[in-house]
Simulated assay, not measured.
Amino acid sequence: MPSHVAVKICGLSDSDHVRVAAEAGARYVGFVFFPKSPRHLGLDRAAELAGDVPDGIAKVALTVNATDAELDAIVGAVPLDMLQLHGKETPERVAEVKARFGLPVMKAIGVAEASDLTQIDLYSDAADQLLIDAKPPRGAELPGGNGLAFDWRLLAGRKYWRKPWMLAGGLTKENVAEAIRLTGARQVDVSSGVETAPGQKDAALIRAFLKATKG
């Protein structure tokens, strides 16, 4: 397993869980701005939580097909280090968002089969980072956070994409070490895998997940 795998705990909504994630060694924390998600935050609450994040941990806003006005409101209210675009944004839109807001942009790419990997090269020029996630089932309300994994063998031996990438989708304390081994991921993202119910994070699960990534 690669040493120093960077972990993102996404969908946080409680200051105790932000503290636990930071103390356990998370490198990123994610806040969700998508009303259909059980992890959605209002701007005031997100600003409070972001204020609790220690220096050196990246604060990431997850958005889905957000308009400029919506992004203006988020960036204006919440101190952030990165924007995560988790919808159907085109490479052109990714570049536009990056230029407008001056923040690094991570683009989520849904994978179910080998042909989906062509998206990675398409977005590599525009995005600063890529989030390789399980493609949501047809008709799903949420583009991510569904607790689904994909066949990690699709990523085996593909460590050399032009941009840093993060593995997501169905990761748990039980399977994350194997996922890292199969894919060579240097970064992983978890949301539902550290919850007891949708949107309900658990401190013990957060700690156990971070411990599992350290082998």
Rank of each mutant, 00 (worst) to 15 (best):
L122D: 15
L122S: 14
L122V: 12
L122H: 12
Y123L: 11
S124H: 10
D125W: 00
D125L: 08
D125Q: 12
D125V: 05
D125A: 13
D125Y: 02
A126C: 07
A127D: 04
A127W: 06
A127H: 05
D128V: 11
D128G: 10
D128W: 06
Q129R: 13
Q129G: 03
Q129L: 12
L130T: 09
L131R: 01
L131C: 02
L131P: 01
L131S: 02
D133P: 00
A134D: 11
A134Q: 08
K135D: 02
K135C: 03
P136G: 06
P136Y: 11
P137R: 13
P137F: 09
P137W: 08
R138M: 12
R138H: 12
R138N: 07
R138P: 00
G139V: 11
G139T: 11
A140E: 11
A140M: 08
A140P: 00
A140G: 02
A140V: 05
E141A: 13
E141H: 01
E141W: 00
L142A: 03
L142S: 02
P143S: 04
P143D: 07
P143N: 07
P143L: 05
G144P: 00
G145V: 02
G145E: 02
N146C: 02
N146K: 07
N146Y: 01
N146G: 07
G147S: 06
G147V: 08
G147L: 08
G147A: 07
G147P: 11
L148R: 15
A149N: 11
F150P: 03
F150A: 03
D151N: 14
D151K: 08
W152R: 01
W152S: 04
W152C: 06
W152Y: 10
W152N: 06
W152K: 01
R153P: 07
R153I: 10
R153A: 14
L154Q: 09
L155G: 06
A156P: 04
A156N: 12
G157N: 11
G157A: 13
R158K: 15
K159T: 14
K159P: 01
K159W: 00
K159S: 13
Y160A: 15
Y160C: 11
Y160D: 15
W161C: 02
W161I: 11
R162A: 15
R162F: 14
K163S: 02
K163R: 15
K163C: 03
K163P: 04
P164M: 01
P164C: 03
P164R: 01
W165C: 02
W165D: 04
W165T: 04
M166E: 03
M166W: 01
L167Q: 05
L167R: 00
L167N: 01
L167C: 08
A168T: 03
G169M: 05
G169S: 07
G169Q: 03
